[in-house]
Lab assay of single mutants.
Amino acid sequence: MPVRRGHVAPQNTFLDTIIRKFEGQSRKFIIANARVENCAVIYCNDGFCELCGYSRAEVMQRPCTCDFLHGPRTQRRAAAQIAQALLGAEERKVEIAFYRKDGSCFLCLVDVVPVKNEDGAVIMFILNFEVVMEKDMVGSPAHDTNHRGPPTSWLAPGRAKTFRLKLPALLALTARESSVRSGGAGGAGAPGAVVVDVDLTPAAPSSESLALDEVTAMDNHVAGLGPAEERRALVGPGSPPRSAPGQLPSPRAHSLNPDASGSSCSLARTRSRESCASVRRASSADDIEAMRAGVLPPPPRHASTGAMHPLRSGLLNSTSDSDLVRYRTISKIPQITLNFVDLKGDPFLASPTSDREIIAPKIKERTHNVTEKVTQVLSLGADVLPEYKLQAPRIHRWTILHYSPFKAVWDWLILLLVIYTAVFTPYSAAFLLKETEEGPPATECGYACQPLAVVDLIVDIMFIVDILINFRTTYVNANEEVVSHPGRIAVHYFKGWFLIDMVAAIPFDLLI
């Protein structure tokens, strides 16, 4: 008679799926529990143990900040960024110097990925580790590398530091407007667009060049630039800015003055950032001319202004700041037409079709709590990747769950009947059967004279019903998954307890 339990259901295979997918890609990662103190490590794979030199037993239950890997060259700011990422709910990448158990130093890129439950609360953290440099290539500990984003994938490793954006290309926007319009339909740009040429040739750093990471940081200074100062900065030398009595002219307006920039070969870094931020506020060169004239017309309804409409929906549905990093990277690809469009465009503009998908598509409701890094690593669709929660398995109709209350009560009843059979069957065979043979035949009273025979008949009927119930009862397979398919249940029961239950259900007393 089957006594099969499996009270692990309803099970959740999400954690096993993450481990299996990460292991298949030869990654070095740990999984931490966000619900406990210090976000203790609950799993670390073999790749991480080989990377740091510690065994799994030495890593388990330690804080996922990996303070046991810190050393003299470990930056405090990087460690603080990892700790801050564990307090938030967004994906974050941090470069930090770690030390192995043998004392060797290596520069590592740590990717902190939160995993949320159905309520939107962070319950786990996945920390992925990628070695960037070994100890002989690690720089000085005073050099802070965590304020910069990861290198873009479309640049060669040897040319990542030679990417320079020439400031004269930004200063000569109005001069290039006529050349853009003359391109017409034969050019790649839309009317009114501004073409910015980027020099990728390796050259020595000069005062006129600005690194790509500095251009990325310009967006942080746009908020500090007032509207009046932006307007004066875009007017140009024809209309000098008016300053109040006793007030000095704005240095932001002076930063885009061609006369002032041409007199000296070098520009201050602050002026460069502010000038680029001011130019980015204009949607095209037409807006710059309109600002000089004193009238700013409404933005025209053409394809170039609607190019950012799908980007707005993608940004609203993005799951991490990696989408913004990807957008900034692609927006700086050289030799393309940049349409400086305000994100607050007309909502009635139709979304044009684009061959290049900048932001990841909208994630469906079932995966809105899973970050983009987890979705990318697992390579699963929205119909396959579940949320991290207890999910009731989908069972067929008329199927009994093996952990249901009805099955528990039924098993206790069958257990009592088995005990009765084990006690009274030998007793009936030894004593009652002998008395029946010696006594007179009682054929007239039937079952009324033999109450134990009636009980034995009921017990046999219950055993037959138990066999039928076992054909529709779920079970737990070797992978700790609840199986509810009727065919698989029948095959599993035939290979197991079916023969024993059938022999126990045969009414031998009635056959004798």
Rank of each mutant, 00 (worst) to 15 (best):
C39Q: 13
Q335H: 13
I31A: 01
A211I: 05
M60N: 03
A282K: 14
G238I: 11
A285H: 10
G88K: 14
L127N: 01
P298V: 08
S278G: 09
C105K: 05
V374D: 05
R76D: 15
K135W: 05
V374R: 01
A121T: 09
P245E: 14
A185D: 14
V198N: 05
G71E: 01
G246R: 14
D46W: 04
L212F: 06
F129C: 01
K161S: 06
L338T: 15
P386G: 13
T371M: 07
S331M: 05
A217E: 13
R76E: 15
N33R: 06
S207G: 12
A285Y: 13
T74Y: 01
I42G: 01
R73D: 08
A80R: 13
S250I: 11
L86K: 01
P168I: 01
R27T: 13
M60P: 01
S206A: 09
C52G: 01
E50L: 12
A175S: 14
A303M: 07
R271K: 09
E91L: 13
M218D: 03
A211Q: 06
L155M: 06
D259Y: 09
G139V: 13
Q61L: 12
V115K: 06
E365W: 15
S263H: 06
F340E: 15
L349N: 14
V3G: 12
L86Q: 01
K101W: 01
M60V: 12
D136C: 08
P251L: 09
V110T: 05
I82L: 15
R92Q: 08
Q247P: 15
S351V: 05
L210T: 12
A285V: 11
S318K: 09
S283W: 01
G381Q: 07
A142Y: 05
K373E: 06
E214D: 13
F98H: 01
S179Y: 05
L385D: 04
D287A: 05
G88D: 13
R301G: 14
L324E: 13
A142L: 08
R366C: 04
R5G: 11
K101E: 01
D144C: 09
S206Y: 05
E230P: 06
I30M: 06
T353K: 13
S304E: 09
F340I: 12
H7Y: 06
N220S: 05
V59K: 01
A78M: 04
T201V: 05
D323M: 05
L173Y: 15
S250T: 07
C52I: 15
L338S: 14
P205W: 04
H143D: 08
Q84H: 03
P310L: 08
L378P: 04
G246I: 15
V138Q: 14
T329C: 08
V122E: 06
K135I: 06
K116T: 10
M308G: 11
D111V: 07
E214Y: 11
R271M: 06
P241D: 11
N45G: 03
A172C: 05
T65Y: 08
L385S: 09
S206E: 15
F22V: 07
F14N: 05
K332G: 09
R56L: 01
D219I: 02
P114Y: 01
G187L: 06
L212Y: 06
S243M: 15
R73E: 14
T353R: 14
V132T: 11
I288D: 13
T319I: 11
S379I: 03
S318E: 13
P150E: 12
R56K: 06
L343I: 10
T74L: 01
P168Q: 10
A89N: 14
A360Q: 09
D219H: 11
R73L: 09
R100H: 14
G189A: 06
H254K: 13
I82V: 11
N257K: 15
E177W: 10
L256I: 09
K344T: 07
P63W: 01
A57Y: 07
T17H: 08
K93W: 12
A223F: 04
Q81C: 06
S55G: 09
E134A: 08
A282D: 07
P240S: 09
P258Y: 09
A203N: 15
L173F: 14
S351A: 08
I358V: 14
N45Q: 01
F14D: 12
R76Y: 11
